[in-house]
Simulated assay, not measured.
Amino acid sequence: MSPYLQIMPAHDQTDVRQTLSHRIRDTLVRQIVSGELEPGERLVETRVAATFGTSQAPVREALRELETFGLVEIKPRRGTFVRSFIRETLRESYVLRAALEETATRLVLMAGNVPFDQLKDDVKRMHDAARENDTEAVGMESVTFHRHILEAAGNDLIKRSWENLHIEARTSVTIMARTPDLAGIARDHEALLDSLSAGDVEAACALARQHQWDYAELPDSTPSD
């Protein structure tokens, strides 16, 4: 261990480990979603640690997060394995989410119940987070934006169906699987807000649907022709 690490304050060591853990997590997410890491493949902590030039502690933290996202399965005394059907499940979830959010958009516009103040605050925080290059905060604000629309729709079955898609986890996975244009994500949500402000029900519904369909197109490891 270097002298610097020996004298580093405990909270600084924690910050460094978390930064490493997030970098490892994000890289593994991209490899899993792209298919570079195949279903059933075992992720060996020592090998991953060697690849990143770190100890096993941040690797272990990253793998626990991947398990929370549903990307890997940690089997006691056997190891960590990539789960099957990740790409298909993500795509299907966005198709379903598109239908739910299109319907919610229609309901809030027809009822004149669009939560404009909340949505404007969400977009502002998204832009602020994008300027800070805070990927996680942009993802969180995106989820909050859409949740405000779902809640304002006033249909409990739609909202519960939406929540059952584990939106936070899937949003995090999708953003990490890409090379995200954070400012672009904020602008996309500003466009959604503008469409709600314009009051054209069909145009706003079409944009809400297309917004989710765009995210169903996941990166692929297969070289393009």
Rank of each mutant, 00 (worst) to 15 (best):
A183P: 00
R42G: 03
I74F: 01
R147S: 10
E136R: 13
T103I: 00
V72N: 10
S34C: 12
A206D: 12
V48K: 00
L96Q: 12
V95R: 14
H189Q: 09
P58V: 00
A10Q: 14
L107S: 06
E151L: 14
A198I: 03
R17C: 03
P223C: 11
L71W: 08
E168Q: 13
I175Y: 05
H148N: 14
N133S: 09
S172Y: 07
S161P: 01
L20N: 07
D225N: 06
E36K: 14
H166P: 02
V29R: 05
V48N: 00
E36S: 14
V143M: 02
Q210V: 09
A183T: 12
Q31H: 12
R64H: 09
D156K: 07
T105R: 00
S55G: 14
N113T: 10
L43E: 02
I24A: 04
M126K: 08
L37Q: 06
D225W: 07
G70N: 06
S34D: 11
D156S: 13
F145Y: 11
E132A: 15
W213H: 15
R42C: 05
M8P: 01
L90H: 03
F81Y: 15
L63I: 02
V82N: 07
R91A: 09
R83G: 06
S224K: 10
Q212N: 07
P3T: 07
T54F: 07
M176H: 15
L192F: 12
L107K: 12
L43Y: 02
E132S: 14
A206F: 09
S197Q: 15
R209T: 05
L150S: 01
E73V: 07
G53A: 01
S224I: 10
N133I: 03
Q13E: 13
F116C: 08
T46N: 07
Q18I: 11
E88D: 13
L28R: 03
A137E: 10
L63M: 02
P115A: 03
R131F: 09
A203F: 08
L100Q: 05
A183N: 11
E73H: 07
L66Y: 04
T171W: 06
S172H: 11
D26M: 00
A198W: 06
H127F: 12
M1E: 06
Q118I: 10
H22K: 13
A137P: 01
A208R: 01
N113H: 14
G35F: 03
A50V: 03
E168R: 15
R170T: 12
Q212P: 01
V95C: 06
D188S: 11
I175T: 07
R187F: 09
R25F: 08
R209N: 11
Q31D: 13
T54C: 13
V138Y: 09
R131E: 13
M140A: 15
P9K: 06
E132V: 00
E168V: 12
T179E: 12
R83C: 01
K120I: 11
D214N: 14
P115L: 02
H146A: 02
V44C: 03
A49M: 04
T144Y: 12
V201L: 06
H11M: 14
D200E: 14
D134E: 07
E102A: 13
R47T: 15
D117M: 06
E101D: 08
I167S: 00
I185V: 13
E41P: 00
E202G: 01
N133H: 07
